[in-house]
Computed example of a mutant assay.
Amino acid sequence: MVIDNVEVDEHSDDPVDHVAELLLRIAEGDQRAFAELYDMLSGRVFGLILRVLVDRSHSEEVLQEVFLEIWQSARRFSPKKGQGRTWVLTMTHRRAVDRVRSAQASTDRDVRVGFRDLDVAFDAVSEDVELRWEGRRVVEALRQLPEIQREALTLAYYGGYSQSEIAALTGAPLGTIKTRMRDGLSRLRTTMGALA
């Protein structure tokens, strides 16, 4: 049985990590393994980047950067330290966050030097303040959720994990994870409305 690219043998406690196998082959310069990995994970990787960056064209650029980094640094992956999918998604999140920081630093520099007219600078600052305010509201609302609901939502929206992956990570049945996420989102909506 295969659950999210990890083969689970019902007679063994040792799951087979297909992403890790591909990364080890990529480290040896195997282009077919790289193509397989791209086909397997590019959709998930792109979705995670897009959630962080929002901008589609920037997300496409970062997607290319992530897979280039995978090709160049696959030798650094160690199956003893964790699953291949986790390694790829962690790298992806780091790259996306770096892009956001870089874009913000560039905007800040331009505003300080005066290369942008005041209307654009005001809009950028206003938007930044609004996003930070909204982010604080979400964090505050998440804190008010029960731990099991907060954990499921955090793994899904910040970690990029699917519901079946969250079930495997937490050891809870898939139906339970779906219920926790549905109930958590419902409470989050209610709490966010109260915080407005």
Rank of each mutant, 00 (worst) to 15 (best):
Val97Lys: 05
Trp71Gly: 10
Asp39Glu: 08
Asp39His: 06
Ala33Cys: 08
Trp87Tyr: 11
Glu127Leu: 06
Gly84Thr: 05
Arg44Asn: 12
Arg56His: 01
Trp71Met: 10
Val62Arg: 01
Asp108Trp: 02
Ala74Glu: 04
Met91Leu: 12
His11Arg: 07
Met1Asp: 11
Glu60Met: 04
Glu60Asp: 12
Met181Ile: 15
Val125Pro: 01
Val6Arg: 09
Gln149Asn: 14
Glu21Ala: 13
Ser102Leu: 02
Gln149Arg: 15
Arg109Leu: 06
Leu118Val: 07
Gln163Glu: 15
Asn5Val: 02
Leu24Arg: 05
Asp39Arg: 05
Gly193Trp: 12
Glu28Leu: 12
Asp98Met: 07
His18Val: 08
Ser42Arg: 15
Val2Phe: 13
Trp71Phe: 12
Glu134Phe: 14
Leu48Asn: 03
Ala172Phe: 10
Glu127Cys: 00
Val16Trp: 09
Phe46Thr: 00
Val66Ile: 09
Glu140Ile: 10
Met192Leu: 13
Ala196Pro: 00
Val120Asp: 11
Met192Asp: 08
Met192Ile: 09
Tyr157Thr: 10
Glu28Ile: 03
Arg85Ser: 11
Thr92Gln: 04
Val2Leu: 09
Asp128Ser: 08
Thr86Ser: 07
Glu28Asp: 09
Val138Lys: 10
Ala124Val: 13
Leu41Asp: 01
Arg187Tyr: 11
Asp9Trp: 12
Leu155Met: 15
Asn5Ala: 10
Asp17Asn: 13
Met181Tyr: 13
His93Ser: 14
Tyr161Asp: 08
Asp119Arg: 00
Arg32Lys: 07
Leu22His: 01
Ile166Gly: 13
Thr190His: 15
Val8Phe: 07
Gln83Ala: 15
Gly193Gln: 13
Glu140Cys: 10
Glu28Asn: 06
Phe122Gln: 09
Leu68Ala: 08
Gly135Val: 09
Glu7Leu: 14
Leu63Gly: 01
Phe115Met: 03
Gly184Thr: 10
Lys80Gly: 03
Glu151Asn: 14
Ala196Ser: 08
Gly47Cys: 02
Ala172Met: 11
Ala168Tyr: 04
Phe122Cys: 07
Ser164Ile: 10
Asp110Tyr: 01
Ser57Trp: 01
Ser57His: 00
Val138Pro: 09
Ala35Pro: 02
Thr176Gln: 11
Ser102Val: 03
Arg75Lys: 10
Ala33Asn: 09
Arg182Met: 14
Gln64Glu: 10
Val2His: 12
Thr107Leu: 03
Asn5Lys: 06
Ala121Thr: 06
Leu22Cys: 04
Ser106Pro: 01
Glu69Pro: 00
Val129Arg: 10
Leu142Asp: 02
Leu41Arg: 05
Ala156Leu: 15
Ala33Leu: 03
Ala152Pro: 07
Gly43Val: 02
Asp14Phe: 15
Arg143Gly: 09
